[in-house]
Computed example of a mutant assay.
Amino acid sequence: MKVDSSLYLNSQNQTREGNANLDKDAFLKILMTQLTNQDPLDPMKDQDFVAQMASFSQLEQMTNMSSGFESFVNQQISQNFLQFSNLIDKEVSYQTREGEEIKELTATVESVKREGNEILLSLNNGQTISAAQVYQIESSMNEEEVV
């Protein structure tokens, strides 16, 4: 039987696009394709099959751990944001750098906002600073104002 030479793999233009990272669905598709197309006279050895299933199990566990860790980080960011909201109407002392000089300033927090993973404080002096710049917090309310 003669095979048409245009069907050879090296004669076909093969351009592939796609994701370089395999997820668990892609791994399962590859495994199923391998099992359905294996030579019935020379089936996959048990050890090879077990090794591939162990690899799949590890991939799934790593994927689950990664998504769990991502969820944990997002919860921490939200919790930090809520904690920093307690600074509204508080007087904060913070450091800012202007060239070589480090200045220590004091202002009252008017609002708190989150940009990405960073918490920013808007102050009554018109500045917006990172929460990491704050080194002291005081109540800006006088004792007479307390009801």
Rank of each mutant, 00 (worst) to 15 (best):
L7Y: 04
Y8C: 09
L9C: 06
L9S: 13
N10R: 15
S11V: 08
N13H: 08
N13P: 02
N13E: 08
Q14A: 10
Q14T: 14
T15P: 01
N21F: 09
L22W: 00
D23E: 13
K24R: 14
F27K: 03
F27P: 03
L28Y: 01
L28C: 12
L31P: 04
Q34I: 13
Q34T: 15
Q34A: 14
Q34M: 06
Q38H: 05
P40Y: 06
K45H: 00
K45Y: 02
Q47M: 07
V50M: 05
A51F: 02
A51I: 04
A51D: 15
M53Y: 08
M53L: 15
M53H: 09
S55W: 01
Q58Y: 03
L59E: 10
L59F: 06
Q61R: 15
M62H: 02
M62L: 08
T63S: 03
S67A: 14
S67W: 01
S67H: 06
G68N: 05
S71C: 10
F72T: 15
F72N: 11
V73K: 12
Q76N: 02
I77N: 09
S78C: 07
Q79I: 09
F81C: 01
Q83A: 14
F84S: 06
F84V: 13
S85C: 06
S85R: 13
L87W: 02
K90Y: 02
K90S: 00
K90R: 06
E91Q: 04
V92A: 01
Y94Q: 05
T96I: 15
T96N: 14
T96C: 06
G99P: 12
E100Y: 00
E101Y: 08
I102M: 12
K103P: 07
L105P: 02
L105F: 07
A107M: 04
E110A: 01
E110K: 08
V112I: 13
V112A: 10
K113W: 03
K113P: 01
E115H: 12
G116Y: 07
E118Y: 03
E118C: 08
E118N: 06
I119Q: 07
L121H: 09
N125R: 10
N125L: 15
N125S: 01
G126T: 07
T128D: 12
I129A: 01
I129L: 15
Q133L: 05
V134Q: 01
V134A: 08
Q136K: 15
Q136H: 11
I137A: 04
E138S: 14
E138L: 11
